[in-house]
Amino acid sequence: MSTAQTRVAMPRPWSAETQRPARNKVLRGIIKHAVLICFLLIMLYPLLWMVGASFRPGNQTFAGLGIFSDTYTAQNYADGWSVGNLNFSRYFVNSAIITVGAILGNLVACSLTAYAFARLEFRFKGVLFGLVIATMLLPQHVTLIPKYIIFNQMGWVNTYLPLVVPHWFAVDAFFVFLMVQFIRTLPKSLDESARIDGCGHWGIFWRIVLPMSLPAIGTTAMFTFVAAWNDLLGPLLYLPRSDLWTVSLGLNSFLDQTGQSTYGTLFAMATLSLAPIVGFFIASQRLLVEGIATTGLK
């Protein structure tokens, strides 16, 4: 495959701007920025409002549609942080442990599985891949009880294991499928040349496919982070003991249908809980979208 050779030689991703004359380019740039910023302002209004509301005194949380207000206070942050038996620093640590465990598990297990389905020939491959897809088609609510019974029998309730271990067994078919699709966009000629250099399947997987799948890995890590970090039902069932609470359970405790809800502190802590995800996103998006360019392989 000759294209593969040229791709290796041309690592820079293509961009619409490269060929434009200068004057035109500036104008186009301004228009693009304007469009993006308008769109962003509309999209981010609810979040900006939430941040604004988190700095208002407790009984003025819903005082209006404006983002700014007359009085600002950090009281919600102080109150919110110290909520519960422990406080949010503990919940952040708990969430982080689960999230890291889930991400590592998904990366290892899903990439191994995806490599087999994308690159290897074996008997019953079609049937087994059908099984991968089929596991995504059943609403998870109806398998919740039998799963709970299994984990309860194993004595795993009130441990992090039910929220981490399944990820090490590639139960998230979504990511297996995603990685299969990514890997299948890679030219197979690279495998062949590696094979000629004496690589086995493990070598091809480790030296060729994984490095070239960095965008898929970044995407998987990011999506797993968001899903694990925001998960409410899992921790609710498996981590009832309050010293094991995650951030999402902590947030949920600000709302009480039967008593008093404190939306101000909820918004404050919800704002803080976004910080790690945003941080992770900014850190991982180099991998996510620049991956191909930086590895220089494609």
């Binding site: 962003l40 979040l47 968001v226 925001n230 947030l251 600000f254 939306y263 919800a270 976004l274």
Partner: peptide
């Protein structure tokens, strides 16, 4: 990119209903 992605991060947060 980060800003466009931001709303997806809110996920099912209990705060979303109020927003």
């Amino acid at each position: 990119r980060a800003l466009f992605y931001l709303p997806s991060l809110m996920g099912a947060s209990v705060a979303v209903a109020a927003l």
